[in-house]
Amino acid sequence: MSLIEIENLSKVYTIGDTSTHALRAVSLQIDDGEFVTVMGPSGSGKSTFLTIVGGLSAPMSGRVVIDEIDIYSLRRDGLSDLRREYIGFVFQSFNLVPYLNVLENVLLPLAPTGMQAKKQTAVAGDILTEVGLYEKAKHLPGELSGGEQQRVAIARALINDPLIILADEPTGNLDTATSESIMQLFKLLNERGKTILMVTHNPGYRSYSTRAIDFRDGTIVGDDMKYIPQMSADYREGREFQQNIWTHD
């Protein structure tokens, strides 16, 4: 079974007397370790698709099954737990909390958990080192460049070691050189086993992904699958452990 199973997703936005079909019976399967770029013109439904897959907004009909969990059958708190444990979000405008420093922003998803402070700091330290921002752990987001802020957002998305990273135009506010380095980072994460679903307008980023999906008017009009990467043995082991926790909880 695929890591993400999407069946007949539909979503209609109604404003006054006007209804807009954002998604029309979209179905898709995404396997473990895929790096999927989602492309399409503005208003094609790709962002709506991402928010529904990420458990942020319920569809009008259809199902999203992640790791064999029908996420919208969960209670509201269960959905919050799932977002925290399974998904890391990276947004175009970084969405960092301005009054928390880099380290605290990265630790944000761990705040509601009971993890000990020392362990939290150790985990965050490793991730900040990985994204090259360990030295700026005490800086506020406003003191960082756009690229650095996006690295902090990526570090925050990784802090819970999620299976899936959902990124919505992560390079939309960055210059070309910085964008390339962020994409390299995503590629690296994908090579380490993370499943990535990224909305982008830049066709050039297809080369980083393993699969490209095109949206038009709320439906998928193109699905170009290049290859399914091989998962490492360590990653597969961790993945099975995480799945068991949810299955038996």
Binding site: G54, R76, D77, R83, F89, N95, V97, L108, A111, P112
Partner: peptide, 14 residues
Amino acid sequence: EIGIFRAVGFKRKH
């Protein structure tokens, strides 16, 4: 900011 909290896994009670 509250939307960010909720997106990263904060429950309503948090």
